[in-house]
Structure formats: C-alpha cells, structure tokens
Amino acid sequence: MPDWIAHVLVAWSLTTILGFRFKQFSQSNSAIVIFGALIPDIYKITLLLDSFGIYMHDFLNPIHLPIGSILIAAIISLFFVNRKSIFLFLIMGISSHYALDLLLFSGGMEIFYPFSPLKFQIGIISVTDFNITIVSIILALSVYLAYKKYNKKNYFNLV
C-alpha cells in the first residue's frame, strides 16, 4: 500500500483542485476527504495487535475492502451534524485511497466482496515503491502554489 503521506496528499490535492471550481470543496471539507482517505488503513491496527500476539488479519481485513470502509464511513458520519454530506466526502476520500491501492502489485484486492471474491489490481507499482510518494509530494506542492496564487488574487473564496 502507498504510505499515508501519499494518501493524505493525493486526497488534499484532489479536493483543492475541485475547490477551484466548486465552493463545496472548502478546506474544512477537504479535511473530511483526507479523513476518508485514511479509513481503509484502520486495518493497520492488526500490526499493533500482532505485537501483542493477537492475530486478527483474517477478521479485520474487510475494513480494507470498499464495503467495510463504507460501513466505517457511515459510522463516522453519525458523529457529524450534516451526516449525508460528510458521508459523501468520506466516500470520496475512500475512493482516492482505493484508486492508489489499485495501482499496486500486492496480490490483488477483492473490491467487489461480498458480491464477488475475484481480486483486482493493475499492478504497476510495487508495495515498497517510494515513487508514488514523491509524485504525490510534487503534485501537492504544485496544487499548493496554485492555491496560494489564486487565493492572493481573490479570484476564488477557498476557505
């Protein structure tokens, strides 16, 4: 899986680019999209449990599948006032997470589980590849500079 830096930066870049055109993608909502982008990796709690000798990989793996992530997003959205819009922003973040993970070569993901057990992955990047992180940093820096420039000229109300 790409590291969290890549997931956070890609989610932020995506919402900031959309924010140039749509005012719904404010910086506060982009924080929700970033939150969504990290939801599938709640599964990483299994690494912590491993160190205590508790093996939960097989039970908790569905959290790192779209259906499990959507259910977690639904639970999280209950803690917000505008839960429908928050849910949609979280789903957007989750989608960006799986879009990145689908590029990897790591044995595939059952993205249509429980409807289909078939595994999918494009397989063009290895799990330990840092290039995806470097690309996401360059992308985020470019978007940040554009954001600053447009903000300075007051063309768009982004915050």
Partner: peptide
C-alpha cells in the same frame, strides 16, 4: 460490519500476501 468481518473470516478468504 461485524457480520461482514465474521463472514469473511469464516469463509477463509484472507491470504497474507
């Protein structure tokens, strides 16, 4: 979510890559 995880584990889908 619990039923999903239980079903996944009991069907033995998980494979540690």
């Amino acid at each position: 979510l619990y039923l999903l995880c239980y079903n996944y584990a009991s069907e033995g889908y998980y494979q540690d890559n």
